[in-house]
Amino acid sequence: MKNLMRYLSMRLLLTIPMLLILLTVVFIVMRVIPGDPVSAMLGDHAPVKFVAEKKHELGLDKPIWEQYIDYLAQLSRFDLGRSMILQEAVTAPILEKLPATIELTLTGLLVALGIGIPLGAWAAKNRRSVGDFTARLYGNIVYCIPVFWMGLILQMIFGVAFDWLPIAGRVGSRVMSSDFEQTGFYLVDTLLKADLKAFTDVAIHLILPALTLGITLSGIFLRLTRANMLDNLKSDFVLAARARGLPEGKVVYGHALGNAFVPVLTMLGLQFAVLLSGAILTETTFSWPGMGRLLLERIYLRDYPTVQGIIVIFALFVSVISLLVDIIHALIDPRVKY
């Protein structure tokens, strides 16, 4: 346990250089390209007399390295600063949009695991059969479907042609999110308020985006599970179980699949970045008010502090996830030593 703690704190420390590297690149590139917050903010026809004054006010007239050091100093105080465009703290829009992205990501992940793992296990059991081949083909095809296109096709079928499901936003017109909003995770919020009508509405709005993300990512988990299952099916403990005369179903889905979870979990940590990328694209198709749209909007506005803030939050987020995966890994697999 002590070793684990030491390992984890090392991992956490390693996040810092990662953050610095990404931040430095974004910081410099954003300030080198044309356009700055002041001219983005001023109207297209406004006289430019306040530009210098405003730039001074925002500290944009200082040399880049000085701005950079100022920013790092600020960051070391765990302060992401204030937006240069809107009258708000950088954390305000992030705290509002991040839960939307996470909610979508997690439900998408559930769908992906729900399809990928059983299908992968089944394919492994029936290795080299037509079913196996079809499952693998499915895995390859969905992997190659652009997630935004999958979203559009689902919208076209279930949203427009059949008119069964809403195709945009997190809630419908008849439900006010401000009535229940607390954590920003609407599924949780509506349950906390025991508002069944709102919960149903939120859940219905999640179906298509979650399916879109989940189906396109299910391919990855399918192949992972299949590969690990194949290894496990040849391993000693499975042979032993068979030798003991356990039913084949129990051997496959009990022993082999159970052991395949650990590598799948590990991959999940690595794949989380992919998952987030997919979520961002799903957001654009479903007008999901999440981080992807926020990032784009703020880059266009040249809102330097907010863009930097978003990068920091994403970096922290993926680090925390992979850390969590490591912890769970260590807890469930006694063989893992640090």
Binding site: P34, G35, D36, S39, A40, Y300
Partner: peptide
């Protein structure tokens, strides 16, 4: 995009 556009016409 717009921020660049404005800078460019100026």
């Amino acid at each position: 995009e717009w921020a660049t556009y404005k800078t460019q016409w100026k």
